[in-house]
Design a protein around this nucleic acid. Structure first.
Lengths: 143, 143
DNA sequence: ATGAGTGCAAACAATTTGCAATCAG
DNA sequence: CTGATTGCAAATTGTTTGCACTCAT
């Protein structure tokens, strides 16, 4: 997602860009493609805004998610993770390595067939999320 | 999943089948295809084992998941839901209605193409989970 | 100055753990 | 008997909220 587009989303929403929010947004931009927990973000963002509180982190991440600047996702570990949006409307698809926990993106969107099938049954598909559980190349090699 | 197979999994694991565990397992069998939270299971199972505690429910659900008798899944609401396994190795795929929250199963497995792609990149795919966000036929109609 | 935004601490929700009492083999 | 299992309550974890204070306009 481009800076221009992020800006546009924030402006549309009349969202005041304070130091804390700037710091959090910077962290998210520096970690494109990674899936950070609120604690991860807090730790990183405190380097720029030392007395940032966890409540502000949650409030900001939730707001940014509602503006579609961030994705808010939950994996099997049961806590939320946030990531800068890459395209306009869709969530990403992920591969989670069962050995090391590394999370990789799946770039392709190979789900249109399935989507069509559901639509033929009367559903209106809005979004989807695919998670593959795998051993990543490194871990596969080590075994 | 057949009773026979469930039994087999429990025996393999040397798992003592107490009244409480029996009650919980019964609830899961009576709710095939549904995704129950720990509280849901507690409420149902207490009809059979009245002073069942929530801790036992969690302990049992986790054990049964680790024996591959149950799936343990987390949706965006951020809490765990459990469901009787249907086949041997794979999770199910779900459609979540964005209006009413109804969760429907996707029976088909249309993901083999993607799986092959990942394998060609060196991953060893073990399992996968697909969640579609949609408006279900009823809600679509109401709009 | 005024309302939006903050940090802190307390509240909450879901889950886990410690422990003494109980149960099954 | 003996170790596994239980229910309860307390502890933990991740997240949310209330509130007095602070900041940006």
């Amino acid at each position: 997602m481009t800076d221009r587009l992020i800006w546009q989303r924030l402006e549309e929403s009349n969202y005041r860009l304070t130091q804390q929010r700037q710091a959090i947004l910077d962290v998210m931009k520096e970690n494109r493609g990674k899936h950070l927990s609120a604690e991860d973000v807090l730790a990183e963002a405190r380097k720029k805004a030392p007395n940032l509180g966890i409540a502000t982190v949650y409030r900001t991440l939730d707001k940014l998610s509602s503006f579609e600047v961030l994705y808010k996702t939950v994996f099997d570990e049961g806590k939320y993770r946030y990531e800068l949006c890459e395209d306009e409307n869709h969530r990403h698809h992920h591969v989670i390595c069962l050995s090391c926990g590394q999370i990789t993106e799946i770039g392709e969107d190979l789900l249109s067939k399935l989507e069509k099938h559901l639509e033929s049954k009367g559903f209106e598909v809005v979004d989807h999320q695919l998670i593959m559980y795998a051993n990543c190349p490194d871990c596969k090699r080590k075994k």
